[in-house]
Amino acid sequence: MSGHTHAGPIDRDRGCIGMWLFICTEILLFGGLFLLYSVYRYKNPADFHAASQDLSRFSGTLNTIVLITSSLSAALAVHELREGRAARSKLFIWATILLALTFLTVKGFEWAAKFEHGLYPNAAHLLSLPPGQILFFGLYFTMTGLHAIHVIVGMGIFGYGLRALSRGKIDAEHPVLVENATLFWHLVDVIWIFLFPLFYLIS
């Protein structure tokens, strides 16, 4: 009875506030990269435009739709959990994870194509291009790479959430883990919403 007030599930208010504060730090983490991006694009507009033509607009658009859809299914997972329908909630989490895998697969093909064309950091071909294009691809790989790491982490948290759901540790009264995983997932989506036009849609 004593001394273990914190051994149980996390308090709902606390868990939510903590997650939102963490989301702030994530936005600022990417914020530093967006600052770099904006300065280098401001200084090298033509190079950024030229380099952007080498990216596949189709893959970028496809991945945007995939990620938005995964955000919807994540939101529905929380909705079903709060309504007390754990089985349906699990289904939506599975859908989210599969969509995340799809995203990563498309991304993998894209990266592979860039590597084939010698468009990766320190590649001889890339170094022969103007500085603005080197910077574009440096930022492209860094920012989409960091984003992909977040996608993988998000899948991991969802997997953990599925296990907790199966063991009955999560229900309509104690949804913090799934709620927070979903908040994190939406954040990943929001970051992509900005990455997509900044890299793929430079006209």
Partner: peptide, 8 residues
């Protein structure tokens, strides 16, 4: 982003 933040 605002849509995602407000509703999702």
């Amino acid at each position: 982003s605002v849509l995602v933040l407000l509703y999702f």
